[in-house]
């Protein structure tokens, strides 16, 4: 029995780790690279799932010795996956570019809800600091924040 290919397994693990790390970054380009690395990791995993290598799986081709042929199905699957990843990378790249055009940078912005909560808190804190006895002020601030939130 062949031992499992340790080198390949380590590479897959490394790619997964690096990909996950990059996906947790705030810059869209890094997210994109993370996605690419994860895609490669997955494709390599598909090839490992095929088992050990062998002769080309072609019907009628001259066979070298008694070498059993490789399993062609995971290769086909990896090929399909590569094409899909390729297309989606291009799409993501265009989104990143568009985001850069619109914002001047490609950082991921805070979530709309998070921003609203932060704004609310800030406004309430500043209203309370400015005039601790007037409760009306913070009420109005909240309505204004609601209006702002509503446009999201």
């Amino acid at each position: 029995m062949n031992p499992p290919d340790v080198a390949a397994a380590v590479v897959v693990g490394g790619l997964f780790a690096a990909g996950c790390y990059l996906l947790l970054q705030r810059t869209l380009m890094r997210l994109l690279f993370g996605f690419l690395l994860l895609g490669h990791a997955t494709n390599l995993l598909l090839l490992i799932a095929a088992g050990s290598p062998g002769a080309p799986p072609i019907i009628g081709a001259a066979r070298i010795g008694d070498e059993p042929s490789a399993d062609p199905l995971p290769q086909a699957m990896a090929l399909t996956a590569i094409v899909i990843t390729f297309a989606l990378t291009i799409f993501l790249l265009s989104l990143v570019y568009r985001s850069r055009q619109l914002h001047g940078n490609d950082e991921v912005r805070d979530d709309a809800e998070d921003r609203r909560l932060a704004e609310n808190q800030q406004r309430e804190a500043s209203a309370a600091a400015a005039d601790p006895h007037r409760t009306n002020g913070s009420g109005q601030a909240r309505t204004a924040a609601d209006e702002g939130g509503n446009t999201l």
Binding site: L31, T42, L45, I48, M77
Partner: peptide, 20 residues
Amino acid sequence: TLASLLSSLLFLTTLALVYG
């Protein structure tokens, strides 16, 4: 897009494991 892509990659990983 990123959430869906991530789930798709996880799907592909699972597929590789299932096939393996």
